[in-house]
């Protein structure tokens, strides 16, 4: 089996830059994507390309279309027009092929969405067993390994409601990782968490970034963004208004919208 870069734990590379592969085709590519919710134009001609190993952070005011963009990547939202490619393959609109391609992209939700009737361990094994056809025993062994890595292996036999939010979100990350995804999407993974639990989730994500996982992250945690992002994208009113490296993004914002946005953050 192909060895994903993030599974080699010994990497102690700095979080940014070194893991980005310029030569490989982009893992995620959106071309001219448009979407409406009724009258509302939520995504306006979006073009986005994410290279292998790249960490792209999306920021912007509430309602600007960040979640919608994130969700269109694996077609949890339909689009009106445009194209989505995963490693150069066109993302089909429905059917088995869509499911297969979805299984290659991990997704972590704001509200965790762990399967409420299943144990922590079963939450992590259900994907490999039901979708990839892996043997239960193997899947369990690997799941325990992953749970250990995110620090919740001692909770394996419990159900999600018995865990704290931070623990649940770390399990959700492990559940995605169990599918050996080519990329992972995070939609405000820490927004539903109590402040003291935010870091335990961000630490896991930082570790993933360090190990070379390709990631698209919607977040309001600016310090975290500055630390892990290769590129930060600013969205407003359904547009990608500006994108840049973290330094440039925060030090030299070009558009007034971004300047206003950064200022509003400082005021808080």
């Amino acid at each position: 089996m192909q060895q994903e870069p993030w599974t080699t734990g010994e990497s102690s590379a700095p979080v940014r830059q070194e893991t980005v592969r310029e030569d490989a085709p982009p893992v995620i590519e959106l071309r001219n994507v448009d979407k409406h919710f009724g009258e509302l134009h939520v995504l306006k001609n979006i073009n986005l390309s994410v290279k292998r190993g790249e960490v792209v952070v999306i920021v912007g005011p509430s309602g600007s279309g960040k979640s919608t963009l994130c969700r269109t990547i694996n077609r949890l939202e339909t689009i009106d027009s445009g194209d989505i490619f995963i490693e150069g393959r066109h993302m089909p609109e429905e059917g088995k092929e869509l499911s297969a391609l979805r299984s290659e992209i991990g997704m972590v939700f704001q509200s965790f969405n762990l399967f409420a009737h299943k144990t922590i361990l079963d939450n992590v094994t259900i994907g490999p067993v039901e979708v990839l056809g892996r043997k239960k025993k193997e899947a369990r062994a690997e799941a325990m390994e992953l749970l250990k890595r995110v620090g919740v292996d001692s909770q394996a036999g419990k159900v999600p409601a018995q865990l704290s939010g931070g623990q649940q979100q770390r399990v959700a990350i492990a559940r995605s990782l169990a599918m050996h995804p080519k990329a992972m999407l995070f939609d405000e993974p820490t927004s539903a968490l109590d402040p003291e639990m935010i870091n335990e989730v961000l630490d896991v994500m930082t570790e993933l970034a360090r190990q070379g996982m390709t990631m698209v992250i919607v977040t309001h945690e600016m310090n975290f963004a500055r630390r892990v992002a290769d590129r930060i994208i600013f969205m407003a009113d359904g547009n990608i208004v500006e994108e840049n490296t973290p330094e440039e993004f925060f030090m030299n914002p070009r558009s007034d919208r971004l300047k206003d946005f950064l200022e509003s953050l400082n005021r808080k």
Binding site: N74, L76, K96, S99, A100, L101, R102, S103, E104, I105, G106, M107, F109, S111, N113, L114, F115, A116, I126, G127, E130, V131, A172, R175, S176, M179
Partner: peptide, 17 residues
């Protein structure tokens, strides 16, 4: 909750399953 279905979809599971 809808999130349960969405999480399962994102794992690549199909509607019947």
């Amino acid at each position: 909750p809808k999130g349960q279905t969405e999480a399962a979809l994102s794992l690549g599971m199909q509607h019947g399953k």
